[in-house]
Amino acid sequence: MTDTAYADPQPEINLKDFIRGVPDFPKPGILFYDISTLIRHADAWQIATARMARAVAAFKPDVIAGIESRGFLTAAPLAQRLGCGFIMLRKPGKLPGKTISLQYGLEYGADELHIQEDAIIPGQRVVVLDDLLATGGTLAASIALLRKVGAEVVGASVLIELTGLKGREKIDTDLNALMSYDM
């Protein structure tokens, strides 16, 4: 891999200009940061993935793990760009074959993540990706699940971090956020 593979073609571009804020979604009082407006803009998406690839490459991962479902949108292209494998962390009933699960609590209830039993070779270096870090529950659970199956979680990366929700405090590995918003 050469440094030019991760060169930022337009370092002056502000990716926040391509993120749409949607008020009162999914419920009143929530401002939803919509990444679909970034992804559909080819140049901005290329720049975003180049910037994330540069940050994630520093972790020297063997495998990139994406959290269902929007985490797949960043994890898959980064894995391809970095020459890594890609694995999916999914909700119950979404993965074929035998899976290992982890239940975790959220501020509004409980949830569960699954990984295929044979997805990780113990000791593999893994970086976990998602679109957004808010309260940190899902990302922290993903890291715990990956460790449960023998992964060495060397980092995490997100497109957007909502800093006011303090999710970073729940993450016990290096974390890179491409953009952040104060709340």
Rank of each mutant, 00 (worst) to 15 (best):
Y33R: 15
D34G: 03
D34Y: 02
D34L: 03
D34E: 11
I35T: 01
T37W: 14
T37H: 13
T37M: 12
L38I: 05
L38T: 05
L38Y: 00
I39D: 02
H41D: 15
D43V: 14
D43Q: 15
A44T: 07
W45K: 10
Q46A: 15
Q46V: 03
I47H: 04
I47E: 10
I47V: 14
A48C: 14
A48Y: 00
A48G: 08
T49E: 10
T49S: 09
A50F: 00
A50K: 12
R51N: 04
M52C: 12
M52T: 02
R54H: 12
V56E: 01
V56Y: 00
V56K: 01
A57C: 02
A57K: 12
A58L: 12
F59S: 07
F59L: 05
F59E: 14
F59H: 13
K60L: 06
K60W: 00
P61Y: 02
D62P: 00
D62T: 03
D62I: 02
V63H: 01
V63Q: 02
I64H: 01
I64G: 02
I64D: 01
A65T: 07
G66W: 02
G66T: 06
I67S: 04
E68G: 06
E68W: 00
S69D: 11
R70K: 13
R70Y: 11
R70D: 13
F72M: 07
F72H: 07
A75H: 05
A76Q: 13
P77I: 09
L78Q: 00
A79E: 04
A79K: 01
Q80F: 13
R81I: 11
R81F: 05
R81M: 14
L82Y: 00
C84G: 02
G85K: 10
G85W: 11
G85E: 05
G85T: 04
F86S: 12
F86P: 04
I87D: 06
I87E: 05
M88P: 08
L89N: 04
L89K: 05
R90Q: 12
K91G: 10
K91P: 14
P92Q: 06
P92N: 08
P92M: 06
P92T: 08
G93C: 10
L95E: 05
